[in-house]
Design a binder for these strands. Structure first.
Lengths: 213, 213, 213, 213
DNA sequence: GATGAATGAGAATTCATTCAT
DNA sequence: GATGAATGAATTCTCATTCAT
């Protein structure tokens, strides 16, 4: 009773796992080949089921895509929100921690490939675009904006335009994600994400101009 | 003799214009709908010709796409290179001027839509990816890197990692481009590109931390 | 257990039969209309399936054609080879029997139409040409050559150039096949294959010249 | 006046030559690639004119094909007919001479490729088939039949079925023609046409069976 | 007459989706 | 629930034919 998962016969557990296996397979292929070039037959094959089975869980290709987006992109945000809520220390350190965690939890995983895809296909999926804006962009920017507001209030950062600064802070992570999944594969050897984020923050925090003595 | 262009029969002049008309139509549709969802018949129709005509000028859809990339993305780089070469004034001002010009000449035009597309489709077109890396990324980064090196030599900027800083400076423009052509259309009202670039550079140049008194 | 074939669900048995049904339909149409003029949709329709189904069994039109060639032409040779191996009697009688059987088993069937087609299309299908030469021509000529050699050894035939004689013996059957499937249909009434082969062999065996007394 | 051809300005003679140049080009390509695979643009290009020009001389592809057939196949017959009419000597020698000349004048040239093509495409061009039967087959067989009848009358050949024997005599030449233009190109090295015809006639005239006493 | 740009019907091929078993 | 054979709409690409210049 305490552990109901273990009590199911194996094939039933398998049945419960089907959607996840299909989502995982779909994620792989969508990221690898893009939406249009991904054949549902290949998704099914990779998940070890038949084409027909896929339709037992997802009405059509579009819904599968949406499910992958929902399943992949949202979870990464939770971790970052928790971190901000519980962090103690300087805002500069928090910003560093948040951005590095962000990369580690989202950027370095396959979900960053989905972000590329969402941007590419947004035009073809109006409701994905809405979902993405509300669930990902708004939540992500609120998180950063809140951090900035608090830092300014506390005098840790100078007065600044919160909205524009938020966008600025998002840019490098977004760029890393796109890099990783497009031309990056060849170039990436040279661009170390951790160092890049670190460099970006150093620059952003202290500025490029030499300090007045 | 003085005006040989005028002496051509009308349909021959037409022929000279066809490739450009087709490229323009293709650019529109590729940006609007993506590679796979763009039907060649629609491209032809928008250019005011028939399906078959398109094939007189471009071997197939892939070649049309490549031609659009070449025709669209490369030209924008020239202007920026010229500006850097001839600019007189502080490096900070030059950086501002270059980035604003970059947005005006490339970002604000349809070519920024192609950049999104190239990133999305790079995996499906290995030679487009190679072309893009060599003709766009390398040229673009060299341009910025050169500017930074000169600024550091002259003592206008503090010592910095040229490669990482270059990537950092590219990020916001790239982000603007992607924004404009994906979820942006709804959000864009709030994100003014000129103000964004300006804010980014202010932050980057002076830092977020309050100045030491 | 005793009758596993019967235990398959109906549509699976169907599946097993499909390739043959399609090959039969394709044979009909290829012979009737030639390679280029045969539309795959018509082949599918004649086999009672849809266009797409055809592609479940044959990669493309070319492969379908090759499959028809392999499926049609080769089987006819076996019968003739067996006959030669087991025949007892004079070589002249064997030659008569082989050639008449050849016509009956191959010439009079649709496969002779494919031979016409192979000759017409050989240039467009290099590997069909190779296959045809090796599997049909070489096997067929070896068969006849062997017969001739044996006949000469036994003193039943006078010494002769085996290679040239073999080609000569093939010629009339080949001609009948072509006749049947090109201009023949109108002319054929007048040219009775059995009588023609008989006449040919009489002439070939005894010569046109009057016998020396 | 006696030589009006020579008096025309060069471009006019050229104009007169156009149809012939086009027919020659079409012959080449039809023989090489078959009817359906021959593109009219290629025919025009090979003749050194534009696609449109071709339509000044031939209504469509089908008419061009027919024109090639008429222009190519018929002329070869005249020579053979003349030879028979004027030949003096034994019928056996005449037969040898006719068949060798036939090969030399028709078989060894491109027109033999057209014969292959006519047989392959006869089904698609009913009037070509009629034309071919009347102008080629009937004339050709009459020629041989006449020769045979005369030889029998004179006691040079034994009594025989003229019709069947005629077909028999045609077979090897026909086979040589087909050989040359299909699988032959690889095999041909081994099959010398002159020797083949010679061997065929020797066999046909004297028979395969050993002569009595 | 000659040209070659333009046309558009037609055929091959792909793949999301359905459904009998 | 699971399967995979079957479907047919959709799309790319070809090429005979037309026609303005």
């Amino acid at each position: 009773m305490q552990c109901p998962l273990e009590m199911k016969p194996r094939w039933e557990r398998r049945k419960d796992a089907r959607p996840q296996e299909l989502l995982a397979a779909a994620l792989d292929l969508f990221v690898e080949r893009g939406f249009a070039s991904t054949r549902l037959e290949d998704v099914a094959k990779r998940a070890g089921v038949s084409k027909g089975t896929l339709y037992l869980y997802f009405t059509n290709k579009e819904e599968l895509f949406k499910a992958v987006v929902r399943d992949t992109i949202v979870p990464a945000l939770g971790a970052a929100e928790d971190m901000i809520a519980s962090f103690e220390g300087s805002s500069a350190d928090l910003l560093r921690a948040v951005m590095q965690a962000w990369w580690a939890n989202a950027g370095a995983t396959k979900s960053s490939g989905m972000i590329k895809l969402v941007m590419a296909e947004a035009g073809n999926f109006p409701d994905i675009a809405v979902f993405y804006r509300e669930e990902v962009i708004l939540r992500g920017t609120s998180m950063i904006s809140g951090l900035l507001e608090r830092a300014v209030e506390r005098g840790e950062f100078r007065p600044l335009d919160v909205f524009l600064t938020t966008q600025t802070l998002i840019a490098p992570v977004l760029m890393l994600m796109l890099w990783k999944h497009s031309v990056g594969p060849c170039e990436m050897s040279e661009l170390d994400p951790v160092a890049f984020i670190d460099s970006f923050l150093t620059m952003t925090l202290s500025g490029l101009l030499p300090r007045a003595p």
